[in-house]
Amino acid sequence: MEWRDQGLVLSARKHGETAAIVSLLTPRQGRHLGLVRGGQSRRRQGLLQPGNLVDAVWRARLEEHLGSFTLEAIHGFSAGVLDDPLRLKGLTAALALLDAGLAEREAHEGIFHETLGLLRALEAAPGAGAEDGTRGWIAAHVRWELKLLDCLGFGLDLSACAATGTTEELVYVSPRSGRAVSRDAGAPYREKLLALPGFLIDPGAAPSRIDIAAGLALTGYFLQGHHFAGTGRAMPAARNRFIDALGK
C-alpha cells in the first residue's frame, strides 16, 4: 500500500528511542498516523513541529497497518508564530482540536483547506502588540471552528430563524437544534439561547472582543456538548488556554 499527499503535522509522539508516530491532516486521507523513522533526531525534529506543511508518502504492507511516512518540508507555519504567544496559542488550539476531534482515515478535504487558510491568516497577522490587527485572524479562527463543527457532523444552520424563517436580526442560536433564532422569536427564551455574534453571518462585520468571546462560547458549546462529550474526551486544554489568553 502506498499513497502520496500533502499533510499538516498535527502532533508527533516519541516512539522507542529514535522514531516518532506522527499525526497528519491530509486532504484525501484525512487524519492519518504513521511512523517516522529517526523522527526524534535533531534533523527531523524541526520538520515534525505541529503546523508544518509537508509532502507525505505513506507505505505499509497492509492498509490497516500503521505504516511509515517519508516526509519532506513544504512550509513551516509554526516558525512564523513562535515569538507571539497569542498566535502560538491559536495555532496549538486549532491543531489540538483537529487531532482530538477528527476520526482517523476519514477524508475531510474541506477542513484541510480551511485549516491551511487559517494558518496563512495566522502567519500573515501582525504580531504581539498590534491590538486591533489581531482580531482578523481570531475571527477567522471562530469561523474555522464553525467549519470544523460542520465537518464533524454538527454544522449550525445560521441562514434563517428556526421559528419564523426570517433572515433579519438573527441574534440567537438554539442549543438544541443548532439553528439561528431571530431577536423577536427568541426574546421569551433568551436566557436559554446562545448568543449569535453578527460577524458569523456577515463576513464584512468587524467583531468586538465581546463578539469573539460569544463566538467561541457558541462553537465551544457544540464542540463540547455534541462532539467531545459523545466521544468521552475532554475539550483539548490548548483551546482553553487560548480562550484564557484572549480574555487577558
Binding site: 524541526g46 512550509h75 513551516g76 516558525a79 512564523g80
Partner: peptide, 11 residues
C-alpha cells in the same frame, strides 16, 4: 536550512 529557520533568522 529549512525555510522556517531562515524566516526567523531574517526577522
Amino acid at each position: 536550512l529549512d525555510d522556517g529557520t531562515i524566516a526567523v533568522a531574517l526577522k
